[in-house]
Design a protein around this nucleic acid. Structure first.
Lengths: 205, 205
DNA sequence: CCAAAAAGTCAATGAGCGTTGACATAGCCG
DNA sequence: CGGCTATGTCAACGCTCATTGACTTTTTGG
């Protein structure tokens, strides 16, 4: 059956021994798998397999699954991109990304999928509260600025994540006209959140 | 240790034999557990335990875990509540619910948590696309009416789910002022989606 | 060139869980 | 009362997976 593997694998040079590189490879594979499958469904053997090493190294380098998860989570949020977000086109850009292909910004997509999966797994959700505060909400809150920044940041995060989930469920790509309407709506929401004082504020009492 | 159980349990009458009631009890327990933990983390033995029966009955009545899940999912979306939603106060009511305690409308909360967990589990997500279309998006789309109803329904669902996730992660309750701002923002978004033609539509080109 | 340590692999263990068939008991019908 | 069937329980099997310790191979330093 998988004789193919047994034959093909050795072709690739048998991998220079390099602790740092191996550690990094495991961490990368872990980030991808955890983002794709979540903590519970991700399998250490597969992560190690993707990294091209044996499972036992996960223990040696990270200590265990949970520790690996935490490190991957922190690494995923280490480089936070709010700094380079473009204030003017932000709403439209983000909405477009959320409406369509994740290929435009795979890094950002993977980070947020990681967050989403971590948030919705009952195993890992408890670990998130603090980290989300520090590395996710705080930067957004700071980037947004203005009045009621915390509430706006939370709504922002909610809409963002929600769109992600919606796209996750939606199998087919969004059609032309509907897609435009979708983007317009979401862009409008983001724009309103970025522009601090809602001019046409009409909250039902 | 759990002698307590052994002593206390028998106090409750030893359960009249009633296939329908038992089936219903299992289904109820399943709905709760699946909503709380998702498909992957929910454990049949616990579900059966909550229902007060043995695991084997799950097989007899439903065939297996996946079949039970599907039935629970359909049952959860069987009674769809869009009919009774109040159009005028909908935005504010829903935002208030999402901002705070789930105790106000536990049924609805459980239904949506079920949906959320099902959508974010890689195991069950593929099963959802069609069901979500039929029983979730379609009713909302119909309830919303007007132009670009599909896109608006999707955005609506996204925001709703997103707020749910946000609340899931947020440990502490939302403070007074922030809470008001949060509710106002979310209510505004919903209201704009309900009111079909966005009067002050200012999408960045 | 050679040992010692670092880097990597292998196989076994044990826990958790879905599944399954044999067994027990209550309710019903003759 | 006596057997039959629906209902419910029990114990065991098999699988997946994280963990772990013993083993092998590469690299390094003298």
């Amino acid at each position: 059956m998988n004789d193919i593997d047994l034959i093909v694998r050795p072709q690739t040079a048998p991998r220079k021994r390099d602790a740092d590189a191996t550690r990094a490879a495991i961490l990368d594979a872990a980030k991808a798998q955890f983002a794709l499958l979540g903590y519970d469904c991700a399998v250490l053997r597969d992560i190690a397999g993707d990294a091209g090493v044996d499972v036992a190294l996960v223990k040696r380098y990270f200590g265990g699954k949970e520790a690996l998860f935490l490190e991957a989570l922190k690494a995923s949020f280490g480089t936070d991109g709010t700094k380079e977000w473009d204030r003017a086109n932000f709403g439209h850009d983000t909405a477009t990304m959320l409406a369509g292909s994740p290929h435009r910004n795979p890094d950002r997509t993977q980070r947020f999928q990681f967050l989403l999966r971590a948030a919705t797994s009952p195993t890992t959700a408890p670990l998130l509260s603090q980290l989300v505060q520090e590395r996710f909400l705080a930067p957004i809150r700071h980037w947004l600025g203005g009045t009621a920044a915390d509430a706006r940041a939370r709504v922002f995060a909610a809409v963002y994540i929600g769109c992600l989930v919606e796209r996750l469920v939606r199998g087919d790509a969004l059609g032309g006209a509907e897609r435009q309407a979708y983007i317009a709506r979401v862009a409008g929401i983001f724009a309103a959140l970025v522009a601090d004082p809602p001019e046409a504020k009409e909250t039902t009492a």
